[in-house]
Nucleic acid binder design. Structure first.
Lengths: 117, 117
DNA sequence: CGGAATCCTCTTTGATACTG
DNA sequence: CAGTATCAAAGAGGATTCCG
């Protein structure tokens, strides 16, 4: 498929992808939602350094972008669940690749990382 | 995926990866540097909407992060070339995955032209 | 529990001008 | 050509408080 890939074309693709998943906590949240739906508080536990404001904001943005769905259960106490949409699930390979790369080169760069060249 | 992956571990890996390549033009620049070394003006032509300041800044950050190397040739007129480092080249699979995803899901309507799926 | 509202700060980005 | 310098604007992010 990417045979006929033009430079300026992929440029937009890459930029668009970055725009959707860059955001301080987005990729991390998406990564955790890959396996299971999570409640607001559960997500927050995964990203404790994020404030409520930031978390809600990033979640709303991703919801607007069609990456996740928000389901509110009208119960007491309130319960809200976040899950990947079909669209969001297509990010799986990318998220795994990111985790893999980060794991291999970013966390193990003590041996041969930046400055090594 | 490497053996037993812990959540909090991959979380850092994903976050770290995002931190390195998110940046308005970074991924796009890296993508173009995958194939060949480029001069400052050539990069700028690929990212025309970036200002000189932004471009220089992002390049300096990526240089500091060990992703690219900057080579200045002492000639007139000045010539500076940017290239991926060994470390930067390891991003290749990720960048390709990003381009592929963006192309397939993000630019889908436009991609649905000739030979598109 | 799952947020929204407000205020404030820091960083990012942009516009413009200048330089070796 | 390949930047740097400076100022100003915009946005991201944080701290705190409050609410259904």
């Amino acid at each position: 498929m990417p045979e006929q890939t033009e430079k300026g074309y992929d440029l937009c693709a890459v930029a668009g992808t970055i725009r959707l998943i860059s955001g301080k906590y987005k990729a991390v949240i998406l990564y955790h939602l890959m396996d299971e739906s999570l409640r607001y508080s559960e997500i927050h536990r995964y990203v404790p350094y994020a404030t409520d404001k930031m978390l809600a904001q990033q979640l709303r943005e991703m919801e607007k972008d069609g990456l996740i769905v928000r389901t509110v259960y009208p119960v007491v106490p309130p319960k809200t669940e976040y899950a990947l949409t079909e669209f969001g699930r297509t990010l799986r390979p990318l998220l795994l690749e990111m985790a893999k790369w980060g794991e291999t080169y970013f966390l193990k760069e003590k041996a041969a990382g930046p400055g090594a060249e």
